[in-house]
Design a binder for these strands. Structure first.
Lengths: 163, 163
DNA sequence: CTACGGTCGATGACATGTCAACGAATCCGC
DNA sequence: GCGGATTCGTTGACATGTCATCGACCGTAG
């Protein structure tokens, strides 16, 4: 039973700041998105990921993996977005089990209308408040942490790995 | 209609890294908390804030403000935690409208049992992966962003401000 | 081909968070 | 003290996310 190493003054300040910033930033970005574009953050993320693909379409499981969502969550959310006319489902030609999510024209309009304001808000409330060195540091350590966390997670070996 | 200033390469990398790190870190921390202590992150936060007060008790609205939660959310959540025996409600002596949230012995046991593992996880998956300079930078810019965002938010002037 | 284990996406039950509305109590100018 | 505006916490309806399970389909060994 090792003695717990608590956070020192600097770490504690960083950790509390991080959590508080997250919460406030989420609230503000969500508020502006809802008000200006009638989209939630999850809506925006779905549309954004779809719009970054050449065809505006993705396999459902592929989108779920990119977003780090469960398939169930994505399926439910798409049902709601479909009812609002932002996306549709199509059959998957390769795999009869599968489904494709497709951006509708209305969906593309929505993300194109929302994006400028959202990016501006991200700048205004976050990135533009950081020095270039801080932005660089943020990019560096977040990717380092992501790589570390990704290792612990569901490897997807089609074939056996070590051994 | 100004032309939108999109994110440059560095900002884009930082912003994507930030969002991905958040998601992965949340998943991992929540997973460990649930497994090791049968607590959700919101549970932990409530217990943590309460345990940091001298009496283990807080006015409900005070706790909601600290956590940046709506009163409604807190009230619902406390009802659930109360059913599990982690907290209780008491009448507020000063204000007959109000209520106090009080940590029960079981609640204190729960947070004290959960804290070492949680702090260790925060170190292991996050803070210990940062250099001291990065921790310092994180503390600096998060607090800067928080201050900025706090200005836009619900000022609580008992008396009129400008004008 | 057939059987079997795994993947895919959907679904229903349930947990959690949001929003608007409410009754009770307080504040405050009169 | 009176009375209207405001604050407090709760509540119910609804939106969203999680979890276990399902039928359909795929890949492959036999």
């Amino acid at each position: 039973m090792e003695a717990t190493r608590w956070l020192d003054e600097h770490q504690d300040r960083a950790w509390r700041g991080y959590r508080r910033m997250r919460r406030l930033l989420d609230l503000e970005l969500a508020r502006e998105l809802t008000q200006d574009a009638s989209l939630s953050e999850p809506d925006y993320d779905v549309l954004s990921d779809l719009s970054e693909t050449p065809q505006g379409r993705l396999r459902l499981s592929e989108l779920a993996d990119r977003m780090l969502w469960s398939r169930s969550r994505l399926s439910h959310h798409l049902t709601r977005m479909q009812q609002r006319g932002l996306v549709t489902r199509e059959e998957c030609p390769d795999d009869a089990r599968g489904a494709m999510v497709v951006l509708t024209p209305a969906g593309r309009d929505a993300i194109e209308a929302a994006a400028p304001g959202h990016v501006t808000a991200v700048r205004q409330h976050f990135l533009d408040l950081l020095t270039p060195a801080e932005v660089e540091a943020l990019g560096a350590f977040t990717h380092r942490v992501v790589d570390h966390l990704a290792q612990n997670r569901a490897p997807r070996p089609r074939r056996g790995r070590e051994g």
